[in-house]
Design a protein around this nucleic acid. Structure first.
Lengths: 316, 316
DNA sequence: GTGTAATGATGAATTATTTTCATCATTGTG
DNA sequence: CACAATGATGAAAATAATTCATCATTACAC
């Protein structure tokens, strides 16, 4: 047998036989050649040959053939991660290309806090305005890899500095103290910031500095509150405040409903500006579908809607 | 001709014939079938057939055949981006797998400011300690896609919250005011923070708030400096301060050499703690080479080295 | 234990796919 | 206007992938 070794020139890619990667991925995923064969509608023999071809090309064995089962080697494990990544991307890109871009389904990924406090209450209004557009929403905290998921758009929380995505500013986060109405009727109603010394301050664990910053801005120094409470998320902190357990710092936009409904009281209108905000984002250089445009326009418009109007309509 | 359409089951992937993607990518890159044919060591006819096969699979035309040259369609353009992404990843993963992991070359990507002010001056010491390890350094500000580049490690600047990477804290950024020695000998030497009113404050454009925060911490309120200066990067701001153009806020670690050498003066030892820091990072779940381990150990140790010792050795 | 079904390896035969070849059309260039 | 370069296309040739037949191993039921 003779092999012709080509001379590599300029920017020619050095790629393994790509079809063998598909077989490799299926075999690894099923941890079985027979299983992969079934999925790929070929015989186990074909799979075995392909894996062998790939291993020979790489000069690395990807599976260890123990007993009558195959197992990925460490090298195979490492390789699989990348190959799956790459195949995911090909699969998503192909799907995106072959499906009609004007479907009226929009897949959105939203930070949980924003989802429950802002988007959910307003969803009905979107449906009224665009009855033929279907939103598929899922909650997620981290960043989306738009190249490897079918998510069309996302709402991110942060400072607006992300790579390779188009961002639309939604609203900045301004923290105001919030408490239950009970607190105001209690023994030590909050009349001036210094009155906080008689109450419990609710901290969000990962944002210890927020109260300190707010107090500084309010011009209060050396304040020792009666008690303090650590809570893991801002959502729970707000809920705790609503229950009268103490005073929390909450975003004024996200809690506007409770504030307007009188369930939460803002004792002092001193806002702590943060450099974090909510943004509507999507992959740069991606053509927007009609549904995506509609959602974007609606979001931007809704952000301008005064709270009163929103509440009037929603309670009517 | 008859085509057998398979029934898609469970998690089977829907992928196009992968080898045609390679041809597609080469053709798109060269904007020519003939060019791609040359690169791939096949005839132009083969390329033409492959592209046709892919286009038929997708049901989308990727190239527009105008005149006697081919051009990507909008769909082709979009598809190309993803395919190149994916092939990059396959290529990098394959290269990583087939090269001996114990080479003594370490590729590092470093934020420019950190590179010139911290790493460069200490590079000699690394070479002395590990003469057989070769560092390949390149400066880069953004985040690295470790899946698509051969970069082994990077130094990031930020708050330490990044996905899917292993981080090692190096040093936090503490801002101190710095100025030229000339200022101290001038008409208004800096003896107390309030003396800043007679001088020019140098701001970094994107970090306007830093001086304000520092002044607040120093207990100075309502200070109106004689002048102010906007400069685009912290590196240039420090340089401007060194030239006697005003007072800048600089990181004490990165400017330690100039400070120790007397080229920069720290008039007040009031440090503004920021929540940003430098981190040494690398891809999670990647096996470290001997070179990478050595570099990491050296970095961590070097961070502990007192400045005096460093300066003694480097000037000897 | 022992038979049996399931898994995987391997070489030869077969089938499918890819590439080339021959030919034609188009067009930019000297 | 000739002609070199590019690309399309169908049929032939070459190559690659798959199956088939066979063997070895082993988990599992009895």
């Amino acid at each position: 047998m003779m092999k012709i070794i080509h001379h590599y020139t300029d920017f020619m890619r050095r790629l393994p036989p790509l079809n063998t990667l598909r077989t490799f991925e299926a075999s690894a995923r099923k941890a079985s050649f027979a299983g992969a064969a079934e999925e790929l509608y070929v015989t186990a023999s074909a799979v075995s040959h392909q894996i062998k071809t790939l291993e020979e090309y790489l000069g690395v064995s990807l599976f260890s053939r123990n007993k009558r089962k195959v197992e990925l080697t460490a090298a195979g494990e490492q390789y699989l991660t990348s190959i799956q990544h790459a195949l995911d991307e090909i699969e998503v890109a192909t799907h995106r290309l072959t499906t009609n871009p004007d479907t009226n389904v929009v897949q959105i990924s939203v930070a949980p806090n924003f989802l429950t406090r802002w988007l959910m209450p307003r969803m009905g209004r979107f449906q009224d305005q665009y009855p033929d557009i279907e939103l598929q929403i899922n909650a997620s905290m981290g960043l989306i890899d738009f190249n490897r998921s079918n998510t069309d758009m996302a709402v991110y929380f942060g400072n607006g500095e992300w790579d390779d995505i188009e961002t639309h500013f939604l609203c900045s986060v301004r923290l105001v103290p919030v408490c239950s109405p009970k607190v105001m009727k209690g023994r030590f109603p909050l009349e001036k910031p210094d009155d906080l010394r008689h109450h419990t301050l609710i901290y969000v664990s990962k944002r210890q500095w927020e109260w300190q910053d707010w107090l500084q801005q309010a011009g209060v120094t050396g304040l020792k509150p009666k008690g303090s409470m650590q809570i893991s998320s801002s959502q729970l902190a707000t809920a705790a405040a609503q229950e009268g357990l103490g005073i929390a710092l909450a975003d004024s936009t996200l809690t506007s409903r409770e504030i307007n409904a009188g369930q939460l009281i803002v004792p002092f209108d001193i806002q702590l500006e943060t450099n974090k905000a909510f943004y509507l984002v999507y992959r740069k250089s991606r053509p927007l579908t009609a549904g995506m445009k509609a959602f974007r326009e609606w979001m931007m418009a809704e952000m301008q809607t005064p709270e009163e109007q929103f509440n009037q309509e929603s309670t009517s």
